[in-house]
Every structure is written in C-alpha cells, then in structure tokens.
Design a protein around this nucleic acid. Structure first.
Lengths: 190, 190
DNA sequence: CCTACCGATCGGTAGG
DNA sequence: CCTACCGATCGGTAGG
C-alpha cells in the first residue's frame, strides 16, 4: 500500500543515486511512473522537496541505527564495532537513499543544506565521543578523536561507490572486516 | 604563461568541484573568464572534453605520485605509508581537480567512463599488491587485500569532503595520522 | 572572440 | 492526473 508520493520518492531516489540530482529531470521521474511531467506536481511541491524528503529520511535512519549503540554501556571498542555494523547496515540496506544522502545533499537550498550539515556533524559526534571514551579507558591509543572519526566514517561512506548487493560479499562480511581493521588500527599496542 | 585553454580547465575544475558537472553550464565557465558563452568553443570542442581533460590529468597525477613508491624495494608497510602520503599530497595539493576526478567522472560518456574505471582499478591494484606483499612477508595480518585496499582508498578519498587548505590541519599531519591508524589496523598482532 | 541564433529541455503552473 | 502552456536556460554553431 505504497502511496503515490512514496513511489515518487523511491523512483527519485533510484534516479538521483544513479545520475545525480542535477542531471535528473522531473520528467525523468514522471516517465518511470507513467505520468506526464506536470502531473508530478499534484503530489509534490518542488523537485527540491523530493530531494529533501529522501535526505532527511536517510539521516533519520542513520541516527536510529547508531544512536542506541553509542549510548550503551558496553566497552568503547564493542560500541564502535556495533556502530560500524549499524552504519554499514543502513548503507547497504538502503543503498539508493544512502547514496543520495551522502552525495546529493549539497544540492539542497542553503537552509536545508545547513541543517543536514549540522546533523552530519552531530552524527559524527557519536563516533568521536565513542572513540574519545575508548582512549580515556585505555582501550584505544591516544590520538585525535575527530580525525579518527572522520577516517572511520569516510571508509564506511565509500561503500556505496563499490558495493553491489548481488556481489560475492555480504554486508556482514564487509562490516566484520572493516570493524576488525579500523578497531585494530585504533587499538592500544600491548 | 597560462594558455586560455588551461584557464578554462582551471576555472571549470573550480566550478565542477563546487557545483558539480551537471549543474555547471558552459556559460558559468565563460562568465568567470569574462567571455561570452559561445566564445568558449573557440578553445574547446565540448563541455565533456573539459571534464575529460581534468579527470585524465588528475588520474595521471595520482599514478605519478604513487607508482614509484609502490615499486620501491622497501618493506610493504613503509611503501604503503609512502603511498598514503603521496595520495593525500595529490588530493590536498590539487583539491579541485582531485574532487572532480573522484566525484564527477561518472558524467563522462561511456567509453571514457570505462577507461577511467579501468585506471582506477589499476591504481587500486597498486595498493592491493602492496598490502598482499605485506601479508606474505608477515608484516600485515592475513586479510582480504582487495577489501583492505578499498578501505584505505575510501578513507583517503573522503578527504576532499572535509579538508580545508586554510584549516588548522596540514596535509602532512593528516597523512601521518591516517597512515598510522591504517597501517596499525593492518599490522600483525605481536 | 562576439553577435545572434538553433532546437531541445528545464522546473513549474493554469485550468480543467 | 492530463493538456497545454510559461519564461528561462541548456550545449552548441554560423558567420564574421
């Protein structure tokens, strides 16, 4: 029971992720739904509103997946491992929307772009704080938590560039490997 | 003694990196050079040719920086450290062209896009081979070299998303931190 | 390198 | 949701 509007978001997400927002026209979206170009505007107010709906929804999913893990009382390394798995789960499970979130948000108008920039920084803060806690607890070697969080998230956010759902590598296998390598990289030498 | 054509590449690189290829018009480029839109075509054959010139040039720079280090006879960890520094040097030293190379190459026409995909895979192969050599030599823990190379390059290629040349963090400091963390992450536990 | 133009397409709207 | 349209802009070209 998908509403027309949800169909539009889904189709737009697919097209935006493949061709980019700027290179996708509202008529491209309409065509995939067997509608006339102008008919889309019975359901949406503007092309940018569609982008915004996709981006804001994806941001919510990342927070919903990672925040509970960041807030748990497990050791920092275990929390970080869980957050890496959760993040990769969103990226691979919603690959089109995640790609649009990661790559196309810069086409939002300034107020919305700034809102997303703020949310991204807040989200990165979950990783920063977890890494900082791990350093304080002696689990991780002393390092710049901000730079380390950026490294971790950059590695994870590169996944849409090469991941194929039907490839030989499961999201779980990728998450295990990435978590092993990254956490090992942060770990204190014994 | 910059030729007009080089000015066009430089201006286009700046605009493509900021707004994206699809959202930049040839008139945008012309305006920055105080030319009429059509006058650009006295110097270039098409908008796509400009993108191609930038992307192909950036690819050359990455190879020129990393290939000699990959081929040296130093231990694998030292080679990988050098390659990470070299790669980050290109990314931060030519940030606009590097951004266009990393983000906008998908707007190339199919034959050129495939050529760049092949070069990217070849380049990633330098990292794969170095990591595989490190595993064989017992410097690195056994792991999937392909996945590990992808992790490393994803982390490095995220840098244009946040690096600011006038920020408090030098390219060298970033490279040191990233190389430390990534090589530590690959290292064999002792 | 400019003027003036080409056909195509853009996001969006009026009125039904 | 369609038809028919709006003004603006697109990449590119002819002729000078």
């Amino acid at each position: 029971m998908e509403t027309r509007r949800e169909q539009i978001y889904s189709t737009a997400g697919s097209l935006f992720s493949r061709r980019g927002y700027a290179a996708t026209s509202v008529r491209d979206i309409a065509r995939e739904l067997d509608l006339q170009g102008g008919s889309l505007y019975a359901h949406i107010a503007s092309k940018e509103d569609v982008l915004w709906a996709i981006v804001a929804d994806a941001a919510d999913r990342f927070f919903a997946a990672a925040r509970p893990l960041a807030a748990s009382d497990a050791p920092a390394a275990a929390r970080l491992r869980g957050m890496i798995h959760a993040h990769i789960g969103v990226v691979t499970g919603q690959i089109e929307r995640a790609t649009v979130f990661l790559q196309e948000w810069r086409f939002l108008s300034p107020p919305r772009r700034e809102a997303i920039a703020a949310r991204r920084d807040e989200y990165e803060g979950l990783f920063r704080a977890t890494i900082a806690a791990g350093i304080a607890a002696g689990e991780f070697a002393p390092t710049d938590p901000k730079l380390a969080a950026t490294l971790v998230l950059s590695a994870l956010n590169g996944i849409p560039g090469w991941y194929r759902p039907d490839g030989g590598l499961s999201a779980e296998a990728i998450a295990d490997h990435f978590a092993d390598t990254l956490i090992n990289g942060l770990a204190r030498r014994v």
